[in-house]
Design a protein around this nucleic acid. Structure first.
Length: 275
DNA sequence: CAGCGTGTTGAGGA
DNA sequence: TTCCTCAACACGCT
C-alpha cells in the first residue's frame, strides 16, 4: 500500500487519534507479524505504555512509547485503524493485532496480504542509528545533493528505475513514484544508475521532491487499495502521468505510454520523451 | 486458470 | 567480495 506520502498520511491521522493514549493490553491473531514470533514478551512489554508520539522514518511508522519504540512497516497492504470494540473497519480475517486503549477504543492492525512487520525496540538502544542502518535519507530531503547521489551510484550498474527502489540508497520511493519521477525528469528507466550525469541526478532529486511533496499534500495515491483511513481516499491519483497508463497517450507528445517489466516490477514510460 | 500487485529479503549466480 | 536477478512471502482481483 504505501510509499512515503501514504505513510506520512497514515502517520498524520494516527497522531491526531492516539497521542496521549495508553496501551492497556494487546492480543495477537497472527504471531508471525513479529519477526521472532515472541508475542508473550511483546505483550508484557507493551502493557501500560503510553503513546508519546507517532512519526516515521522512510516507510517505517514509529510509535514512540514511554520505554519502547514500536516500529510498523505496512509493506503492501497493512492498515491501522482506531475504532470501537465491535466496529471492524476491515475484514476480521485480516486482523493481526489489537491493542485495547485506555479510553475503551481499540487500535487495530489489519493486513490482507500479511507482508507487514511489527517490532519493539527498547529506547535504551540507539534506534535512530538502527533505522539509519536499514534505509538511506528520504528522497525528498533537500540536503541530498547530486554529488552525493552520484557517489552512491558510483558502482551501481542496475537500471535507474530499480536503483530508485533500493531503500538503502535513498528511501521513500516505491513503484508508483519511481515511474512518475523518471517521466517528469524525462529519463529512460533502463539507464544504468552510474551512467547518469550530475545534471540528470539533480533533476531526479528535484522531481522526487516535487512529486513526493505534492503527493503528501494530496494525502497519497489511491489506486489498488490504499486509503489513509477507513473510507478516505488519497488524491494524487489524479496527477499520475504514466503509472497504470499503458496504451494511453503521453501528455507531452501523444505517443502511447508502454508498460514493461524491470526488476520484476511493472514499469511505465514514454519511449519518445524518456530516451 | 494464469498473471499481477503500493514492498522487502534471502538465495544463488556472475 | 560485491553486485545483480529473481523467487518467495500471501491473498484477492482481473
Amino acid at each position: 500500500m504505501p510509499e512515503l506520502p501514504e505513510v506520512i498520511t497514515v502517520v498524520d491521522i494516527l497522531k491526531s487519534e492516539v497521542i496521549g493514549k495508553t496501551l492497556k493490553t494487546c492480543h495477537f491473531f497472527y504471531p508471525k507479524l513479529l519477526k521472532d514470533n515472541n508475542t508473550k514478551e511483546f505483550v508484557d512489554n507493551i502493557k501500560n505504555q503510553s503513546i508519546k508520539n507517532v512519526t516515521n522514518r522512510a516507510k517505517f511508522i514509529l510509535f514512540e512509547l514511554d520505554d519502547f519504540i514500536m516500529i510498523s512497516h505496512l509493506r503492501m497492504e497493512g492498515r491501522w485503524a482506531i475504532e470501537e470494540k465491535a466496529m471492524y473497519a476491515y475484514s476480521i480475517k485480516n486482523l493481526e493485532v489489537e491493542f485495547a486503549l485506555d479510553d475503551n477504543l481499540f487500535l487495530r492492525y489489519y493486513d490482507l496480504r500479511r507482508f507487514g512487520t511489527l517490532e519493539l525496540i527498547h529506547k535504551s538502544i540507539d534506534w535512530k542509528k538502527y533505522l539509519d542502518g536499514k534505509v538511506g535519507p528520504e528522497a525528498n530531503n533537500k540536503k541530498i545533493t547530486a554529488e552525493w547521489l552520484s557517489h552512491q551510484f558510483q558502482n551501481v550498474k542496475k537500471p535507474i528505475k530499480v536503483a530508485l527502489l533500493d531503500q538503502k540508497i535513498i528511501s521513500g520511493i516505491g513503484n508508483i513514484y519511481a515511474n512518475e519521477i523518471l517521466f517528469a525528469a524525462k529519463i529512460n528507466p533502463y539507464i544504468p544508475a552510474n551512467a547518469l550525469n550530475l545534471e540528470q541526478l539533480s533533476l531526479i532529486l528535484k522531481k522526487s521532491q516535487d512529486i513526493l511533496n505534492k503527493a503528501i499534500e494530496m494525502k497519497g495515491t489511491t489506486i489498488h487499495s490504499f486509503e489513509p483511513k477507513h473510507g478516505m481516499q488519497g488524491g494524487y491519483q489524479k496527477y499520475l502521468r504514466v503509472h497504470m497508463k499503458n496504451h494511453k497517450p503521453c501528455i507531452n507528445c501523444q505517443e502511447k505510454i508502454i508498460k514493461v517489466q524491470l526488476g520484476g516490477r511493472g514499469t511505465y514510460y514514454c519511449q519518445n520523451c524518456q530516451k
